[in-house]
Each structure stands twice: as C-alpha cells, then as structure tokens.
Write a protein that binds this DNA or RNA. Structure first.
Lengths: 171, 171
DNA sequence: TACCCCTAGTTGAGCACTCAACTAAACTCC
DNA sequence: GGAGTTTAGTTGAGTGCTCAACTAGGGGTA
C-alpha cells in the first residue's frame, strides 16, 4: 500500500468548488420542483422519459436503465407515482414476469405543469451565467466523465457478481 | 405568462450529459465511501471540515454554514456520528443555547482510514480523465455557478421569511 | 418432463433528508 | 426590567433511497 496520490491545493480548490456548485444546483432544482410541482427531481425525470417513449409505455427494466436507476428504486417510485395517478402498471402478456409502466393523462398534465418552471430554473441557474464556450466545455467534460464511469459501473456489477458466487461456493 | 425559454437540442444534450455525469459521479463516490468506510459522503465532509478547524471543534451553526447544511440535517447527522463515537457534543459556556461539535480521536481515525480511498476515487474518476485545461475550465464554471446561486439562496431565505410574516399577520 | 439457473420485479428494514413545530436562551427597546 | 422578537439547536413525522431477501416466471439441458 503506497502513499495515496493526494490532491494538490489547486485540485482541492477545484474539487471543492465543483462539489459546492453541484450541491447548490441540485438543492436549488430540487426545491423548485418540490415546491412548485410537488415532486422530486427523480420523478420528473421518470415522467420525461415515459412521455418520450412510443405509446408512453415502457417496460420497468428499460425505464430503470434509461434513468440509471436501480430496479428497487424504480419499483418504489412507480408505486408512489401510481398512487398519485400519474402512471399505471400493466401486465406483460408475452412475459408474465414483466410489467409495463404506462403514463396516464394526469401524469402527462403533471409533467406539462412542472416543465416550464423547471426548465426556467435550469436555464437561469446554469445556462444563463455561462458563456457559449463554457457550455460547450461543460458538455465535453461531462461526456468524458460519463465515458470514464460507464465501464466502471459494469466492472462494479461484475465484481458484485463474483463476490456473490464466491460466497455461495462456500455453502 | 409567456412561452417559457425552452432548451435547444444542443442545450438539452449538454444538460442531460451533465446530469448523467454528476449522477454517476455521485453514485460512484457514495458507494465507494459507504462500502469502504461505512459512512455517507455528507458525514465524510463533516469529518473533513471538523478536522481542519482549530482544536477540531466548531459551533453547530458554523459547521452547518461551512458544509452548506440545514441546522436540522446537521443535528440529525451529529447525533448519529456521536453514537458512532466520531464526535462529541459540548456545551457552550458563553451562550447557553449553543453547542460545539468536537471531533474525537476515533473520528479522526475514521477520517484517516477513509481518506485515501476517497481521494483515489475522486482522482481516478474526475481528474485523471480530464486534461489540465479542462480541469481549469471546470473550476471556472463551478465558480460561476456558485456566484450565480449564492445570492439566490439569500433571496430564497428572504422570501421564506416574508411568507412567514405574511402568514402570521393574518392571525 | 424435471431440474437448475437466470431474469423481472416487489418487498421491508434501515438510513438520510426535509419540513414544520418545538424549547430555551439571548437580544432589543421602551 | 419586562415583553416581544431573534437566534441556536432539537425533535418527530413523512419521503426517497439502498440493500438484501424474496416470489415467480423463463430458458436451457439431460
């Protein structure tokens, strides 16, 4: 175990600013959406993805992947959204294990009511203060981070699987 | 109420990538810290700030401000961290309402055990894939967002206050 | 056909957070 | 110096998350 590669003062400053900026942005958007539309940001994202799906229906698994959510989280979320009347669960005929999440009219209306305020919040807190050049840079940076982390998610899943198998082998 | 300023396709792509990148980064760091050190990222931040304070003691309010946390969140967090033995609450002699949070030896050790893994995770997922130029850009962008959102927090607090007063006036 | 493993989705417990309500001490101002 | 207002911090209920355990159906192989 060698000495870790600590952050330089400069890196530390950047990291703390980035952390703070992201934290403030999240908090700002979360509060705006919660107060004005009565939903957390994750539910908003689910409504957006569902509204763009053909027929406004999606299999639970596909919806989980599209929103980078765990199956469990999605299941809980859809349960609550169904209670709100925004979504309807439907059985899958060809695979009896499966389930569809179907956006309802009320769900679409909730999204349409929430969208303008949310978009305005994103625009005014992120896009307005940045120059076009910075926006381009932010896009590049984000894409790079996604590329860096995507294989790592797969690796983590594989490791998880391996650990599980090792545990099971002992019995 | 005029038509909202919707995002262009380009902006939308940038926003979704940024959202995804931040989400993946958060999830990655949260999981790493939770698995390797048994603490959420917010507790790690509290330990860091406390460890850098003179005497490793801070007033609750100051700690809340330094970590951009609500009083309530901090109070709950410190309660749990005290149960873990990482922190000790101490009374303030000069202001009987006040309380100090004092980092314990065990807390410092928990931080020292957690730090290398966390720093390595930050470095490998954020700093390694970015060029020095991009890191500089990210610092600039973050500072701009902070500047944009800081007055807005104050404004939100003022508005909240005003709302409270208006409600109270009615009684 | 029977067996075994894999995949889809749900469930419940536990944790962190928010919000609103609360206690108690300090300040302010007549 | 006493009443009203602020400030410091806590508390409890409700919500969304994670993790692990579970049900149940699909798919392969002998």
């Amino acid at each position: 175990m060698s000495e870790p590669r600590w952050l330089t003062d400069e890196e530390q400053r950047t990291w703390r600013d980035f952390s703070a900026a992201v934290g403030m942005l999240r908090a700002h958007l979360e509060t705006q959406l919660q107060q004005d539309a009565g939903m957390p940001h994750t539910y908003y994202e689910l409504l957006v993805v569902l509204s763009e799906a053909p027929g406004q229906v999606m299999r639970m698994s596909d919806l989980a992947i599209a929103t980078r959510s765990s199956r469990s989280r999605l299941s809980h979320a859809i349960a609550r959204m169904e209670a709100n009347g925004w979504v309807r669960r439907e059985a899958c005929e060809t695979d009896k294990r499966g389930a569809f999440a179907h956006l309802t009219q009320a769900g679409l209306e909730a999204l349409e009511a929430a969208a303008p305020g949310h978009v305005e919040a994103v625009r005014s807190s992120l896009f307005d203060p940045l120059t076009p050049e910075q926006i381009r840079q932010l896009g590049e940076i984000s894409a790079t981070i996604i590329d860096q982390l995507t294989p790592r998610c797969a690796a983590a899943a594989a490791e998880e699987l391996e650990r599980l198998e090792r545990d099971t082998a002992g019995t």
